[in-house]
Design a protein around this nucleic acid. Structure first.
Length: 553
RNA sequence: GGCCCAAUAGCUCAAUUGGAUAGAGCGACAGCCUUCUAAGCUGUAGGUUUCUGGUUCGAUCCCAGAUUGGGUCACCA
């Protein structure tokens, strides 16, 4: 595209393109010719260049990846960050998958990555579950009921809400305003009292809290394991909130924040174009913001963090603006540098998920449902009939999670996305299983080659390749740049789009040309190496997305 | 109401960050399994990129305004 050069060349577009083309073809070895179409200069690049590039890709086990060294920057990525009063749902799944994938992408860009999870294990929400369990639980435990711990605790959170709602409507029927009713309902005040007792270290409250949280953690661990996500360092807000509270009180002393007559503490951010924000309640208990201040301080003490990434939904943009500013005001120079990776919500066909209206898609149910579908599809195809049940189940899981993860990660993280439980479970087209299937096909060919005693060379010398082959190589060699872009944009979607494009092209190639039956030995070996390299790249791409690939399916 | 974000094929999403004829999948229709895995491949139909202006050689992309949808402004997290 030569338009920007016209003001220097002072000639017409065609003539300018001609001049530049002549110069480049004459001076750069890999350019063997050019043509001009409507002001666009197209360069013809010599085949030897593509062979050279291909060999680079073929030789390297982790083509496109950079590894960390002692000079690498430390990137801490916070993701997941669940509340301990209810099980994980579809929204958390997007968070977990993005957090894990971005971590892998940052690693592939040569960073030292610390994956962290801040568990919100304290606060009014968990007190609500505790209170309802105390009132209605009759000592129910995961063992006694056979329920998964996080689900059990979640049920009591719902029961609290029902109790509370009934009280509010009774009070309104008795003549109170809605606002007053919500304020005066006995259960909400009991829950508040419980939170106060908790912060005062009341032994009974603490031990109930510990018991119910232990159920939830067992449940979460199971879900995390299923999803294949993990953490290098887990923080608990019950340990960090006091540090945050101390920071806030220091802020009061230093005149950064103000304490009201009722002893609540506020930050006035009006000069910064924001509102007033509460940091400590009048009863002295902490809020979300207080905890986040403490957590941030502790993390920077624990690790030499160069970049801090918070994987948190875009509904909290304002929260992180405020947090950044507050940390800055408290004198931490890294406050302004924190990066809120704000991803879009997952919506259902009916709109946003609402736990109170029971429209949430539970994470465990969703995965189990996907596995059922994978099993059904696979059994209909009957390709795994010779395998053991154990092996089959393993493949069903890989395919099911591949479908779910790819479906979520292929979408630009910033955008709101729609999940239709009926229609989103697909295994054809632009899906995880389609890509996994291509990988399995490649492995099948490679097994055949191995059985036939064919040695695949490490690289190729000179060979006449067809259109499809050079098209494949042209896509393949953009991968390092894709990894780089995915890192700077924090976007797994770029990796997903790349691997889809590659796989789509390969399937056409696979359809149009034979690999093992190619009579020319040199060409056959080249095709095997090409297939092997593409297989490797598929696997590496999927590792960046946290998706496994099956050897057969 | 203030601030923030989004709008592309019937549906779900892309578009190399301002470039050539806006691409995929699903759904619909028509084909391809004596051949390395048909979870695949090929073809057809489907678009005034929400609207109105502006910036320039050129706008889905940048700017202004409008419309529609969403988020957020809690002593919730």
């Amino acid at each position: 595209m030569v338009f920007p050069f016209l003001r220097f060349s002072k000639k017409g577009a065609e003539q300018t393109a001609e001049d530049i083309g002549n110069f480049l073809a004459g001076n750069i070895g890999n350019i063997s010719g050019f043509n001009i179409v409507k002001g666009f200069l197209n360069l013809v690049i010599d085949q030897s260049y593509w062979i050279y590039q291909f060999n680079n890709a073929a030789v390297s086990e982790k083509y496109g990846f950079k590894s960390a060294d002692e000079n690498s920057e430390v990137v801490m990525i916070e993701y997941s960050s669940p509340n301990t009063n209810k099980p994980l749902h579809l929204g958390h799944i997007r968070n977990n998958l993005l957090g894990y994938s971005v971590s892998e992408i940052m690693k592939a860009n040569g960073n030292k990555v610390v994956k962290t999870n801040i568990v919100n294990d304290r606060g009014i929400h968990i007190c609500k579950s505790m209170l309802a369990w105390k009132k209605l639980g009759n000592g129910e435990t995961p063992e006694s009921s056979g329920k998964k711990g996080d689900h059990l605790v979640g049920e009591y959170y719902v029961k609290f809400d029902q109790l509370y709602k009934n009280e509010v409507s009774d009070l309104i029927a008795g003549g109170l305003s809605e606002e007053a009713a919500k304020e005066q309902a006995p259960t909400i005040n009991e829950a508040r009292e419980m939170l106060r007792l908790w912060e005062a270290n009341d032994p009974d409250t603490r031990s109930l809290w510990q018991l119910m949280n232990s159920w939830v953690y067992a449940g979460f661990d199971e879900t995390y394991k299923t999803l294949g996500v993990d953490f290098d360092k887990i923080y608990y807000e019950s340990n960090t909130y006091t540090v945050g509270r101390d920071e806030v009180l220091r802020g009061v002393k230093e005149g950064i924040f103000e304490q009201m007559d009722d002893s609540s503490v506020w930050a006035n951010l009006e000069k910064d174009g924001l509102d007033r924000k509460i940091l400590l309640r009048s009863d002295g208990t902490s809020v979300y913001m207080t905890q986040d201040i403490g957590t941030a301080k502790i993390r920077y003490n624990d690790f030499p963090i160069d970049h801090m990434i918070y994987v948190v939904g875009n509904e909290q943009i304002y929260h992180f603006q405020v947090l950044s500013l507050l940390l800055d005001k408290l004198g931490y120079k890294w406050g302004k540098d924190l990066y809120h990776f704000s991803y879009g919500m997952v919506e259902l066909p009916q709109g946003r998920m609402k736990s109170r209206e029971g429209t949430v898609v539970d994470a465990d149910d969703l995965v189990a449902g996907m596995i059922d579908v994978a099993r059904k599809v696979s059994e209909e195809l009957g390709k795994l009939d010779n395998y053991s049940d154990e092996e089959k189940e393993r493949i069903y899981r890989i395919v099911a999670l591949g479908a779910l993860k790819y479906f979520i990660l292929k979408v630009d993280p910033k955008k709101t996305m729609l999940f239709n439980p009926e229609e989103s479970i697909d295994f054809n087209g632009n899906t995880g299983p389609f890509i996994q299937y291509t990988y399995a096909r490649i492995q099948s060919v490679l097994r055949k080659a191995s059985d036939a005693g064919i040695e695949i060379p490490a690289q190729i010398t000179d060979i006449e390749m067809n259109e499809k082959e050079s098209a494949l190589i042209k896509i393949l060699v953009t991968f390092p740049e894709v990894v780089n872009e995915a890192g700077t944009n924090h976007s797994p979607a770029l990796v997903a789009n790349f691997v889809y494009e590659l796989v789509k092209e390969f399937n056409q190639y696979y359809h149009d040309f034979t690999i093992m039956n190619e009579p020319d030995e040199e060409i056959r070996k080249f095709r095997l190496l090409l297939a092997k390299t593409i297989g490797k790249t598929i696997k590496n791409c999927f590792s960046l997305l946290g998706i496994e690939v099956p050897e057969r399916m």
